[in-house]
Design a protein around this nucleic acid. Structure first.
Lengths: 120, 120
DNA sequence: TATATACTGAACCATATGGTTCACTATTCA
DNA sequence: TGAATAGTGAACCATATGGTTCAGTATATA
């Protein structure tokens, strides 16, 4: 099975566990923005938003660059690959189990039919 | 755009942000287990594991049922639908942006060729 | 019935989180 | 140069988290 960096998944999922940060990600999906702009939009102090951006940056979900006074934030595309892969993997595992169950059921039914055909 | 329950996403992503809990989910993907069994496997007190299970249960990622003394835990299949959808949605948004960019670039190139053909 | 097992819950602890204010630096603009 | 703007960082606060221990309840087993 594929192995993921646990620490990486920790910080990424933790970053995603806050509604404001998910909102920021959606916003940045539409257009870049400065920290001040984001702070305004999400009714929060500049310092507060700065913290959120730091969290998102550490998680690799956002990249920033500073030009003059203003730091511009943009969504970091590659950030969700690993998380999506983890979730997908987990779901596949389940699908596999259900398919296995289906097979067992089919086999049992086939056997029943078999029994019927051979009497008893 | 689809709307997700922010509180639901909060708790689900938070639940996924811990390596032990992700491990438990993987384990439960392979087979059901009692809390004691999980506590042993993850080198943790029974009480500690109970807390993790509670978190996973609240997040809708695990279901449990108690028979006699023992509470059996099983992976809650439906739990990850919404998170996967959120991530997918976010990624699609980005794909769309890149496609739009591609179109712009293509148009610019087409215009360049056009200019060349008509001289100037 | 006595003992062991499986869980539950309260209390505690250290650390992290989400937010604030305040003081500071660096840039821009009049 | 002086005032406004954008960000940074430290300190603080309340609450949450991940873990523990200890004391309890409920169930199984000898």
């Amino acid at each position: 099975m594929v192995h993921y960096s646990e620490a990486r998944l920790d910080t990424a999922f933790a970053a995603l566990s806050d509604a404001t940060r998910r909102g920021v990600l959606e916003q940045l999906g539409r257009s870049e923005a400065s920290i001040t702009e984001l702070a305004d939009r999400f009714h929060m102090t500049l310092t507060g938003m700065k913290k959120h951006i730091s969290v998102l940056e550490r998680a690799g979900l956002v990249t920033t660059r500073k030009v003059g006074r203003v730091r511009t934030c943009r969504s970091g595309l590659s950030g969700l690959e690993e998380e999506a892969a983890w979730i997908e993997n987990y779901r596949k595992m389940w699908s596999a189990r259900f398919e296995a169950l289906d097979e067992v059921i089919e086999e049992l039914q086939a056997q029943e039919n078999d029994d019927e055909r051979h009497g008893k």
